[in-house]
Simulated scan of single mutants.
Amino acid sequence: MSTDLSFGPAHKAPADSAVTLAHIMSEQDTNLYGTVHGGAVMRLVDDAAAAAAGRHADGPAVTASVDAMTFHAPVRAGDLLTVSAAVEQVGRTSMVVAVRVTAERWNSSGPTAQVATARLTFVAVDADGLPRHVPMLRTP
């Protein structure tokens, strides 16, 4: 019996599924304290993570859990958020996606600050909503 250690189509690197979204936050996103509501940031995090998971799975993937969500700094209306997500771990049908959120003023090239990080678990599903296998993760 031979062992094939080559990476075939059943293996994907984290970069193969990486996603970056950008969104300018508005007054409609703010809470009673005048900062952007955490739920508005979480929605963007879930969107980016779902896109990364779907790319890795080559099809639909649903959020199973938000394993960690940490807010490091407030976000304000007029901030341009950049949300970067990539699959960092896979199981038989599940994927763990790491997300990093940065903010900068929409109209300047000033400093960029990390404002949130998150880890979410997704499950790949078939047309009937049942879990299905995902490609293995190729790591360096």
Rank of each mutant, 00 (worst) to 15 (best):
A73I: 02
F7E: 13
G110A: 14
A98R: 15
G78C: 06
A48I: 06
N107Q: 13
A118C: 07
H72D: 09
L81A: 04
L44Y: 00
L32F: 03
A53V: 03
G59T: 03
P14D: 05
V83K: 05
A113H: 13
P74Y: 02
G8N: 00
Q89C: 04
T63F: 11
L120D: 10
T82P: 02
L120C: 09
F122W: 06
P140W: 00
E104W: 01
S17W: 05
D58W: 01
A85F: 03
A57Y: 01
P60G: 12
H11W: 15
A53K: 10
D4C: 05
V66Q: 10
A49C: 07
T35C: 03
L32E: 05
D58S: 12
F71L: 10
T117D: 14
V90M: 05
A53F: 03
P111V: 11
L130R: 15
D67E: 07
R92D: 12
D16N: 07
R92L: 09
S108D: 15
R138L: 11
V62F: 12
D4Y: 04
H37K: 05
S109G: 15
A73V: 04
S26I: 00
A118M: 04
P60K: 00
V125Y: 11
M95V: 10
T121V: 10
T70F: 01
P135G: 07
M136L: 09
D47L: 03
T20I: 08
L130I: 01
